[in-house]
Simulated assay, not measured.
Amino acid sequence: MTERGLKPAEHYVDGGYTSAEIILQARALDVEVIGPVRQAGGRPALQGSGYAATDFRIDWQTRQATCPQGRISTRWSDTVIGGEPRVHIDFSGAGCTSCPAKDTCTTAAYRVLTLLPREEHELLQQRRAEQQTEEWKKRYHTRAGVEGTISQAVQCSAVQCSAPAPGILATEVLTAAALNLY
């Protein structure tokens, strides 16, 4: 598409294509990826309570983090996990064991944060805030029409049955590929 001068300025995608790495790679090609990024994970996201990494103030200049209770991290190190760069932040010795909010924060002896590198971390923070706005939701609503069209086309190309007959999956894949080319 780029070779033919048809590169999009914006590319609407689902949540499977919105990692910080993908968004930054697309930006390097002057394409803005528009899609929902995952919310921060961890115990707060799973249980609906507690402190998430997003509740901590990160000072990239001084390489320190401050917890919601005002305690400052004691160690900051750049590391690699699974071949990917990460920032590891410890609060050991910061008073976690005597903190009145410890049970809200962590089940470990002290809190640890593992973050993406600064550019990726800040990008995802910005996107998480943006996708909560009505403006973003309205803009992304365009994607729903595309998804509906693709879904209907794929479903209409296949025989509806409980156990797909041989060749049905191939038909669906070829239909989806044809729609992408179109």
Rank of each mutant, 00 (worst) to 15 (best):
R43Q: 10
R63S: 05
A40T: 10
P36M: 06
G95W: 01
G82M: 13
Y110G: 01
G93Y: 11
I89L: 04
A40S: 13
R71Q: 10
P36G: 09
T104G: 10
T106H: 08
P85L: 06
G42N: 05
K102E: 08
R71G: 01
T54K: 06
Y51E: 08
T79V: 13
P100F: 12
I89H: 09
V112S: 09
P36K: 12
G95H: 02
W60F: 12
D90N: 15
W76M: 05
V37C: 07
T107N: 14
T97Q: 12
A108D: 15
S49K: 14
G41C: 06
C96Y: 03
G70M: 04
G50C: 05
A45M: 09
T54V: 13
S92F: 08
C99Y: 04
P68L: 00
P85C: 05
A52E: 08
V80C: 10
S73A: 06
G70P: 03
F56L: 03
V87I: 15
V37I: 07
C99I: 12
A45R: 13
W76F: 02
A45K: 11
A53G: 15
D55F: 00
A40K: 00
T54C: 14
R75K: 14
P44W: 04
L46S: 13
W60C: 06
T106M: 09
C67N: 05
D59L: 01
G48M: 08
T74I: 05
R71I: 00
I89A: 08
C105I: 11
E84Q: 15
Q39D: 13
D59F: 04
Y51D: 11
G48C: 10
R111W: 12
V112R: 15
T104E: 14
G70E: 03
I58S: 10
S92R: 07
I72M: 05
R111I: 08
S73I: 00
G82V: 15
R71S: 02
G50L: 07
D59W: 03
A109G: 09
D78S: 13
C99P: 04
G70Q: 02
G42F: 06
A65Q: 01
D78P: 02
Q69V: 05
T74R: 11
G93M: 12
C96K: 01
A109I: 04
G82Y: 14
R86D: 01
G48A: 06
V37K: 00
P100I: 11
A45P: 07
P44M: 06
Q39N: 12
V87F: 04
R57I: 03
R111V: 09
T54F: 09
R57L: 13
P36C: 07
A40N: 09
A94Q: 09
S73N: 06
T62W: 06
R43D: 04
A65M: 00
K102S: 07
T79M: 10
T62N: 11
S92G: 11
H88W: 13
V112E: 02
Q64V: 03
L113A: 07
T74E: 14
G93D: 12
R86K: 15
A65E: 00
V87M: 10
P100V: 10
T74D: 14
Q69W: 00
T54G: 14
